[in-house]
Design a protein around this nucleic acid. Structure first.
Lengths: 318, 318
DNA sequence: TTGTACGCGTTATCAA
DNA sequence: TTGATAACGCGTACAA
């Protein structure tokens, strides 16, 4: 397979000149340029990007870490990330981790080994102290509000959750619970703090049975509603941190004879199309915009923080 | 940043010996081995994979091309692909194409430039003649039955569709239509052929209005049902090539006062959890298994073809 | 405007 | 069992 030297020989010029033509640098005479182009054609020359990467110390690839891709929240982020990557002529290396630390570290190791130029964490299991040492190898970007020297794009989960709780309170709900993906994680904990503070401010009792974790998909909504129906003391409203689960609750409610919002108020998150179909009151998150911003941050040298805003969309489940 | 030569110098051995230790090759005395390990520790040496890639001509990264990831069909494939990639200690580079040829070519160009070792097409817009020339640069694997010299994993779409049509016929449906993602594409065309052949064998008329393309998501189901309700001559059953759209049809039917299966029989595809929740009769596709197999094929030198089987799951929408 | 020569960091070959 | 050295292929000072 022909390399740059072969091309240079055929064209009767130096490798520098070939390199100049290849990279559209100035200072190449038109006739030589043509000769190089012909030599490339003739030899079937193909650039070996590994050599370029070795020489330049960069690969043009950005790592993206997320637990799943088959969930609207992450799919939305990914869409924005992919759009911006394309715009910037960069490539994405996807690390679908299922929240396994080992996989997250694998991404960071690729950063260390110069296989990716930067790494974007859309969510994580690893503690920050595991991630932090890798910052010397390249830009690391987070999708959460975190008190560390790192770039991130975030939603003020505490405030959003608090606002949502107050909205439910204002609508007259007295026994509010919530569904969440996992209890751990910065975002989840901010929500839990908001929930606790809300309860305290309203002098309401905390009821562990009204928190439903592992809620990601439609089928989880069914599970949640079954659990609720078996409760002596039931919540009268639920903050559901994704529309899929909210939709599942509505579908299950139909089957189980619950009426929404009379028996149970439901507020979703994401504003996924299914929320519109089922008229679910929800909080719209600008996921694609976040994805694009995360990507931009991964290309910046300096540390930047960006908050994005959400929007309450009132429909019929509250 | 320390390189292999620095390590060699510190340890007082040659680079070859360091390389041996690094790659766990035999023929290294334990004391030298220890010296190397210490030198690595001391110098903070990190392997530069770009140099390895240049030297070996491989990167251990496999490209995956798919139009979207936020669709259960592709998410299912991706899950299997990611599992096997992990098992084989390879990395996935994701190309989310939105069915744009330009993006598909970008993946192939990375193959050409040795940035990925192989490329897996889960679906495509590009014609085969655009893809074929890239086979010289690495293994290309398709997820469709195609009459070319290439490895693929496939579902016999013609047969599956035909069986489904006959099942509907046997259940007494007389005016069968179908929903599909796009009309083009090998898989879609095989289905269309089956549909045409079925109509012919039953001496049924073809009705263009009973084919609904652009059906991917729940909201498409609502659109389809609205279109149907505006039809003078309505289908009495629909083969819906993904459960999302089927679910959308059911949800819309509820709102619009259609009764399923009485007014409209619905058969989904995929056996996604939502199909179980809504009791949708569907055809289960072994997506993860397909994904794993696609990945395995991408690592094989020789051309292999693998058919996978589907399973009809009878529930309540037929 | 062009060319020489070296650096990038590793693996592989072959002789010792 | 070890080491010297040649690839691998490109970018780029620096010299001309």
């Amino acid at each position: 397979m022909a390399n740059i030297r072969d091309v240079a020989r055929i064209a009767g010029v130096s490798v520098t000149t070939v390199s100049r033509v290849l990279n559209e640098h100035p200072y190449v005479q038109e006739d030589k340029r043509q000769a190089v182009l012909e030599a490339i054609e003739e030899s079937g020359y193909v650039k070996n990007m590994n050599a370029v990467n070795l020489s330049t110390g960069k690969t043009g690839m950005i790592g993206v870490v997320m637990p799943f891709t088959d969930h609207p929240y992450f799919a939305g982020l990914l869409k924005g990330l992919a759009e911006e990557a394309r715009f910037q002529r960069k490539k994405l290396v996807l690390f679908q981790t299922d929240y396994e630390r080992e996989q997250e570290i694998a991404a960071l190791e690729m950063l260390k080994h110069k296989q990716i130029d930067a790494c974007i964490f859309c969510s994580r299991s690893s503690e920050w102290r595991m991630i932090e040492p890798y910052q010397t190898y390249g830009q690391i970007v987070m999708c959460e509000e975190i008190e560390e020297e790192v770039s991130y794009t975030f939603i003020n989960q505490y405030q959003v959750f608090m606002n949502a709780l107050n909205y439910l309170d204002q609508k007259g709900y007295k026994r509010i619970g919530y569904c969440i993906g996992r209890r751990s994680g910065t975002n989840s904990q901010a929500r839990e703090r908001a929930y606790m503070d809300f309860l305290k401010s309203k002098h309401l009792p905390f009821n562990e049975e009204w928190i439903f974790d592992n809620s990601y998909h439609v089928q989880d909504g069914e599970r949640v509603l079954k659990e609720i129906s078996s409760l002596v003391q039931r919540p009268d409203a639920l903050l559901v941190t994704n529309d899929q689960t909210a939709a599942g609750i509505l579908i299950a409610a139909e089957k189980m004879g619950f009426s929404i919002p009379e028996d149970l108020g439901v507020m979703g998150f994401d504003n996924h199309p299914i929320a519109e179909m089922l008229s679910i009151t929800t909080i719209a998150l600008p996921l694609e915009k976040m994805g694009r911003n995360l990507f931009k941050q991964s290309l910046q040298q300096n540390i930047l923080r960006k908050e994005v805003n959400v929007k309450l969309i009132e429909r019929k489940t509250i």
